[in-house]
Design a protein around this nucleic acid. Structure first.
Length: 155
DNA sequence: GCCAACGTTGGC
DNA sequence: GCCAACGTTGGC
């Protein structure tokens, strides 16, 4: 596993419950429409990378699961779908603007880690999540990754 | 290329 | 629902 990431989603749009309902708990991470997030996804996120799944815009925002990347980046199909809220009329199949990756659940955290707890943890003070709250795809350091999985009761 | 107006994110 | 922070748009 080469890289570690945090992916953020509104829990009622695509949350852990949606991923759990997918066949093999495997789903597509789509709808990214921010260039900084897109660049990470397109250029750096790789198959096999580890991902912290974060719920935003809900009662208890926080990290709820560990997932892994199970594909390389490919054009996000929703950008070509006029029915989709993520439709982008300026994007063409020849020159797609937005990408997706597929992800698969590794484990749901027994103890979801609420944002308010992360904020209090000195070992996580440098997390991008806490410094640039609006970025929906962001790198996580190996030290942060280990610490968070330990807090969540993982290995 | 500047920057004001506007839109979105997301915690609270 | 509010609003701060930030991103995007578009006139000039």
């Amino acid at each position: 596993m080469s890289g570690y990431w945090l992916f953020k989603a509104e829990s009622d749009v695509y949350g852990l419950s949606h991923l759990l309902a997918e066949k093999h708990q495997r789903g597509r991470w789509d709808g990214i429409r921010n260039y900084q997030a897109r660049n990470f996804l397109r250029d750096q996120v790789a198959e096999g990378d580890g991902v912290l799944f974060y719920h935003s815009s809900c009662k208890e925002p926080g990290i709820v699961a560990q997932v892994k990347v199970v594909s390389s980046a490919y054009p996000d199909p929703t950008q070509f779908d006029p029915q989709s809220p993520y439709y982008d009329p300026k994007s063409t199949p020849d020159n797609p603007r937005w990408v997706s990756v597929d992800i698969q659940l590794v484990k749901a955290f027994k103890q979801p880690l609420p944002l308010k707890q992360l904020k209090l943890d000195p070992l996580l003070a440098e997390m991008i999540l806490l410094r640039q709250p609006r970025l929906s795809i962001q790198p996580v350091t190996p030290a942060e990754w280990r610490h968070i999985n330990k807090l969540a009761g993982g290995r």
